[in-house]
Design a protein around this nucleic acid. Structure first.
Ligand SMILES: [Mn+2]
Ligand SMILES: [Mn+2]
Ligand SMILES: [Zn+2]
Ligand SMILES: [Zn+2]
Lengths: 137, 137
DNA sequence: CACATAAATGCACTTCCGTTGCACTATAAA
DNA sequence: TTTATAGTGCAACGGAAGTGCATTTATGTG
């Protein structure tokens, strides 16, 4: 619990109770979580507080936002030394249509995409949908 | 207007007035469109009808659904001879954060992603966000 | 400690999008 | 013409994101 505070302070985020709890949950879970997931888990806390906590985490590069095609925004902790740089830090995500979990594939970096002249990229999202190993056969 | 009917009939979709109009608009527009876009354009038609038209188009492989990170589902016509196969037919999409348009990059096929054992893919989405050529500088 | 200020939280409410149920209408078949 | 089927329109619902404002908690200063 101690180093959780360090993580937040290193990113200039004050370690409030709510933030520590959300951070802890994100770290213990190996799947991406949605705002509703957190709301259901921390039933005593208000949805808005969790919403703003996540927003703060994304802004301060503690967590990253994931678009998995479900229409529901998911969040996962950034890797160590992540700066959310498009060339180096972004990775593939996988969404299982059976168990409905979305997980990070940090080993699978997103390949470079050559865009036509004039186009400028500042973010890339690559999501694979299908069946995960646990749900397969 | 004649060959629009052919397109629908080839996909076993009856060419109703609404379907022909939506198909025509999709073909004349080089950007992906949302349900709301169509609703605003065909103000005399009901939102539900357009919704179901798009659903029919996707099901019958006339159009494909695009996840561009905005949280709003977009649609665009399939390429000629598209069968929405994951290995051959899927391409990159670009979303401009200035003009808010989402366009297809049919030349940029989505590269093969090697998944860990046990994972099975049935869909892939690769979206680049940034500034398009028209909006750049 | 007392007070002033700023940050974080909680509550209520709104808006937007996707979706569904059901009734009505147009089309096609018998 | 009757009957069945497919398409359309209307109304409503539910989930999710987001905002305004009041209240509480933390911080800092004399
Ligand atoms: Mn991730
Ligand atoms: Mn496309
Ligand atoms: Zn699964
Ligand atoms: Zn643009």
């Amino acid at each position: 619990m101690q180093d959780l505070e360090k993580i937040l302070e290193n990113k200039n985020v004050k370690p409030t109770a709510m933030r520590l709890l959300v951070l802890q949950l994100l770290r213990n879970k190996n799947a991406a979580v949605s705002l509703t997931d957190l709301e259901d888990h921390f039933i005593k806390s208000d949805r808005t507080t969790i919403y703003r906590t996540l927003k703060t985490f994304v802004k301060n590069e503690i967590a990253h936002k994931i678009v998995d095609g479900t229409g529901i925004t998911k969040y996962a902790l950034c890797e160590e030394n992540c700066h959310c740089e498009i060339e180096t830090d972004l990775h593939v995500h996988f969404h299982c249509k059976i168990c409905n979990e979305t997980i990070c594939f940090p080993k699978n970096k997103i390949p470079y995409i050559k865009l036509p002249d004039g186009y400028e990229a500042d973010n890339v999202s690559l999501t694979v949908t299908g069946i995960c190993d646990k749900c397969n056969t």
